[in-house]
């Protein structure tokens, strides 16, 4: 009835939905459970985590999976290298929070993009003690991670080792040293000076 519709149906450039060709290398999508087992096998006790399953769709129900991992910071860089051997991992962003004694960074990767319905999100958590919040840079593997690493430095006070460009990104240079907006343990005096809520001041 309708002639071929752009952007809908079978992709014209790839017959095989299971694989993704990159630089002559074929990438085969593993199910999330298998990927998780592979990581477990190679990293053993240094990683722990789970696979979460969700369902989507209206008439056709489909499942999709996320892997949530916790990795020791010494092996984090190695894990990213490990992933990049399968496919250049996509880094969505690194988020983070102040978890009391520690700073927890969460790197949101995804693998197997470019293959229908088989992308696996990997959320990799790394805990850094507050007295020594140092983590290795991954810009040597993914140059595009620079901005998010710089943001983590200025917002959470993390130190990224070997970062090519340590300057601030979003905050002003006039923001005092040692004040990190996303931390909960800022000096209340400094915070009071910097943050105002005028609706509470009755203006």
């Amino acid at each position: 009835m309708r002639k071929k519709r752009a952007g809908m149906g079978e992709a014209p450039y790839k017959k095989d939905n299971e694989t993704f060709t990159y630089d002559g290398k074929k990438v085969t999508a593993y199910p999330a459970e298998k990927l998780f087992d592979m990581i477990k096998e190679d990293f053993g006790e240094d990683v722990e985590g789970e696979v979460k399953t969700f369902t989507a769709g209206v008439k056709k129900k489909k499942e999709y999976k996320e892997i949530w991992l916790k990795v020791k910071r010494e092996r984090f860089h190695e894990l990213v290298e490990w992933m990049s051997k399968i496919q250049v991992p996509h880094l969505a962003v690194a988020s983070g929070r102040d978890a009391g004694e520690e700073i927890e960074l969460i790197y949101h990767f995804s693998l197997f993009y470019g293959i229908r319905d088989s992308e696996v999100s990997l959320c990799v958590k790394v805990s850094l003690p507050k007295e020594d919040p140092v983590i290795d840079t991954i810009t040597d593997i993914l140059p595009g991670a620079l901005i998010t690493e710089r943001e983590k430095q200025e917002m959470l006070g993390v130190k990224v080792k070997n970062i090519p460009d340590p300057r601030r990104v979003f905050t002003s240079d006039e923001l005092p040293e040692g004040y990190y907006p996303w931390r909960n343990d800022n000096d209340p005096e400094v915070e009071k000076e910097l943050v105002r809520d005028l609706s509470k001041e009755g203006l």
Binding site: G57, K62, Y64, R116, D117, S118, E119
Partner: peptide, 12 residues
């Protein structure tokens, strides 16, 4: 395309 979510899962 990479990940089915919402009603997009029903479409090709």
């Amino acid at each position: 395309y990479d990940k089915p979510y919402s009603a997009y899962a029903d479409l090709d």
